[in-house]
Write a protein that binds this DNA or RNA. Structure first.
Lengths: 217, 217
DNA sequence: CTCCTTAAGAGGCCAGTGGAATCTTGTTAC
DNA sequence: GTAACAAGATTCCACTGGCCTCTTAAGGAG
């Protein structure tokens, strides 16, 4: 643990918060978010449950904070290649697929996380998230100038939706993974990066086609 | 309840199963699947928990069975209009949006339901589900003959993915709904049928564009 | 250096969960 | 009428998130 027993100063409190987020991140590499209990999280941090809740109002709030942190870091390091639109969005898909933490948390957002949390916390998260999505839309328009601003935002929202829909099936629970071994279910086995890339190519193609059709009219 | 106290014959057992599914369906109109506990379900059926588990191996298995039943019924009654591809997929979106049960369960599939269930049950479900998706793909090709078989299947899978990704945000928990009242979050308020329809138009446009480009080559 | 305040920490408790094990008793076949 | 069987209820278990209560480390005042 740390060199202090009790966090009194704001810096020490922030250190505790970051320690909790760090452990949560570690646990997420071992199990899906739904299986991480407050008890286990607290045990690994070396605190009691009560004190984890002191720093984050609920279990869910921990994962919200973690997602925002991870998203920011990802976008900071994201570099999209120049080239045809398909190549750009495929690179985007590969990049986000390399961040399982983001995919896992994003797919759990609507169904698991956005319960049991105060309206204020949701508002803060969504505002920050909206800004991050806007950043991504801007980056996409730099590489795909034909995209209208509206279409770029739409493309970002499809990216999020597709991650949320696709990720759980690409990372099935053990029982499901066993079932999918059945040869008749070969089509259910999913390569996440590839499928996401393909879907985004379809989306960007559709958006560009619709945009240019609207322009001709 | 029924006119018998104990279900002895296969017919009576089937009647119990259907009664359980019926109550589950009723409960789903009142609350999301994540909030329906085995206790409450059993109480409303008029059985003890143990006996619900007798008929469905786990809580999750109830919802699996319900989804398959609802999907079959929906497809039986589904009529897609003739006309341009956009109109066809928009009709599809409106139709499925009119079945909140399907949307709710489909969006819970990967994250909540496909845990805690035997490999056999998953296999059965996925096989039946695959057939239902194939049926839908066939119906789409009848109305959009330009679609290749492969693209029709892809379009169906996008439909499922988009439902799963979009539905939770269109049906937020009370706390989230309150947060989204904030004027800065106006973009987060989602009209499900409309957004799904738009996304499917983008998808089908993209698929058709890519198909015809491949054909020209 | 001592004392006093304060809030970070721990522990126990509570109502809830899914479901296995065990016990009771309708129902039916003989 | 009775015995066997399985449909039902009861009880219990390990677990969850998190609130309430109590202890005590830490730091400032004198």
């Amino acid at each position: 643990m740390s060199d202090f027993q009790r966090a009194r100063s704001p810096e020490q409190r922030e250190a505790r918060r970051q320690a909790i987020l760090g452990v949560a991140e570690e646990l997420l590499t071992e199990m899906p978010v739904s299986e991480i209990s407050l008890r286990e999280l607290a045990r690994r941090v070396g605190l009691s449950k009560t004190n984890v809740v002191r720093y984050f109002e609920t279990r869910e709030a921990v994962f919200f904070a973690l997602l925002n942190r991870a998203l920011g870091e990802w976008l900071d390091g994201l570099e999209l290649p120049a080239g045809p639109p398909a190549g750009v969005v495929e690179a985007l898909a590969r990049s986000v697929a390399g961040r399982p933490l983001i995919c896992d948390l994003w797919s759990a957002l609507g169904t698991e996380l956005e319960r049991n949390i105060s309206a204020e916390a949701v508002r803060d998260f969504k505002l920050a998230n909206g800004e991050l999505q806007a950043r991504l839309a801007t980056m996409l328009r730099e590489r795909i100038p034909e995209l209208t601003e509206q279409s770029a935002r739409e493309l970002v929202s499809y990216t999020v939706l597709l991650i949320a829909g696709l990720w759980p099936f690409a990372n099935p629970s053990p029982g499901v993974a066993e079932a999918v071994q059945d040869p008749r279910l070969a089509g259910s086995r999913v390569d996440f990066a590839e499928r996401l890339g393909r879907a985004l190519v379809v989306a960007v193609t559709g958006l560009l086609t619709l945009d240019s059709a609207a322009q001709r009219r």
